[in-house]
């Protein structure tokens, strides 16, 4: 299938990305090329084949539930672009009515 500019906008919103109008033609071309390439898989009959999801044999790996202080609040906030010592700060979400 071929995707169009509208699909690009919809997918970009889902992925929380912005695609500028200048970048759109090249991205559209690349994505369509890559998607056509991926459609090669339609040549294979996968009727009755289970999807392979887990690559490990480990099932329900448990450990003791011990209380540990591994990361402190200052450490957790240390890489934040904006914080107030207790919380991550973001632009105002709820406006006063």
């Amino acid at each position: 299938m071929k995707i169009d500019n509208q699909t690009i906008d919809r997918i970009a919103h889902l992925a929380r990305l912005e695609v500028s109008d200048a970048d759109k033609p090249a991205l559209l071309k690349d994505m369509n090329n890559i998607l056509s390439f991926m459609e090669k898989l339609n040549e294979l009959d996968t009727t009755g084949v289970e999807p392979l999801i887990y690559l490990t044999d480990e099932i329900n790996v448990y450990r003791e539930d011990a209380v540990k202080q591994e990361i402190t609040v200052p450490e957790a906030l240390s890489n934040a672009p904006e914080q107030d010592g207790k919380y991550f700060r973001v632009a105002k979400v709820i406006e006063k009515s």
């Binding site: 898989l41 339609n42 294979l44 996968t46 084949v49 999807p51 392979l52 999801i53």
Partner: peptide
């Protein structure tokens, strides 16, 4: 059409 299909083909390849 894409993701689930690829998971199945992955199983065949493995």
């Amino acid at each position: 059409a894409y993701y689930a299909k690829a998971q199945k083909v992955r199983n065949i390849i493995r």
